[in-house]
């Protein structure tokens, strides 16, 4: 997982600098190892062979696809190494489905309709105590807002957390197709595809795209959401790793042993669609709730002018 490897940061981060947001050119050390160039004879050399046997010009490669199409039977060695066990398991799943008459549980239905992505960071040399506030800070926020928070945080580990959030966001988009609702809608509109068609529905990846709305989270915070498929941090938690070993060199030849802790952060990203559903469910629950009556609702039978107690 090279994504997380902490890179050397500039000494001072000045967000007001106009070059701050510009993409940095890749460092020389990041480039792959240079392949030594093969030497050649001088053009005037008598050993130079005829034009017919001349090699192709440097830098030009024969036209071949970078990745040739893969044979599924070969892929099966890695993707389906035990077909019998897979078939047995799938058979049991189908039996269970038939027994339930094709009905899915709520968890099953949600797993097939709402996207989520889980990303665990590598271990950072920090403590649970220091990372926990950051996790609490980003939990519940839209991913972009969480990234902004980490960018301007004065905590040291916030830089690593920001990097991880960016990775988690990219992973969610690429692997799970999250946050693509607006883009897909735009594409469909440009291509003239009716979203109500079956074809568009099949492509469930792109979620339902609704116009902007105000969404209230479970803590009561209200946010305006322009794209219902946009990503937010549903949960964020930290995990303690093992302790490292370092030395504190003291005076008079003394050395104290330091045990620097290692901690990771894990985020679960979801789409705003989920938060909207949760909001709706809360509202429905509220609607279902019986109205509290201060006095029993029954006909008044004994009417007297004065109280009897």
């Amino acid at each position: 997982m090279d994504y997380f490897r902490p890179r050397k940061q500039p000494e001072i981060l000045d967000p007001l600098d106009k070059d701050f947001l510009k993409r940095k050119p890749p460092a020389a050390s990041q480039s792959p190892q240079q392949v030594p160039q093969q030497g050649d004879l001088a053009p005037s050399s008598i050993f130079e062979e005829g034009d017919s046997q001349k090699k192709p010009a440097k830098g030009s490669r024969p036209d071949q696809p970078r990745v040739s199409p893969r044979d599924p039977t070969v892929l099966a060695a890695a993707l389906d190494p035990n077909p019998e066990a897979r078939q047995r398991w799938q058979r049991n799943q189908i039996i269970r489905n038939v027994r339930n008459r094709g009905q899915l549980t709520k968890a099953q239905r949600l797993a097939r309709t709402e996207r989520e992505s889980l990303s665990k960071s590598p271990f950072y040399t920090t403590s649970v105590k220091k990372l926990m506030p950051l996790a609490r800070q980003i939990a519940g926020k839209p991913i972009e807002e969480a990234i902004v928070q980490m960018r301007f945080s004065k905590k040291k580990v916030a830089r690593d957390v920001k990097k991880h959030l960016e990775f988690a966001r990219d992973k969610a988009i690429v692997e799970r197709g999250m946050g693509l609702g607006a883009a897909t809608a735009e594409y469909n509109r440009a291509a003239g595809i009716d979203e109500s068609d079956g074809a568009a529905e099949d492509d469930a990846s792109q979620g339902d795209h609704r116009p902007g709305m105000v969404v209230e989270d479970k803590k009561g915070k209200r946010r305006f959401v322009s794209d219902t498929s946009s990503i937010y941090v549903d949960e964020a938690w930290v995990g303690r790793g093992s302790y490292g070993r370092d030395y504190d060199h003291r005076a008079k030849g003394m050395t104290y042993l330091l045990r620097p802790p290692e901690t990771s952060i894990t985020v679960r990203l979801k789409e705003e669609v989920t938060r909207i559903r949760l909001m709706d469910e809360r509202e429905q629950k509220r609607q279902r709730k019986r109205v509290w009556l201060p006095l029993p609702d029954r006909p008044v039978t004994a009417q007297r002018q004065y109280c009897l107690w």
Partner: peptide, 23 residues
């Protein structure tokens, strides 16, 4: 890893992730 991927694909149905991405 193959078993985990197969089961996740089954549970997620149409939302199964792409695995041939990234590194």
């Amino acid at each position: 890893s193959a078993r985990q991927a197969q089961r996740e694909d089954w549970h997620l149905g149409p939302l199964a992730p792409r695995r041939d991405v990234g590194d």
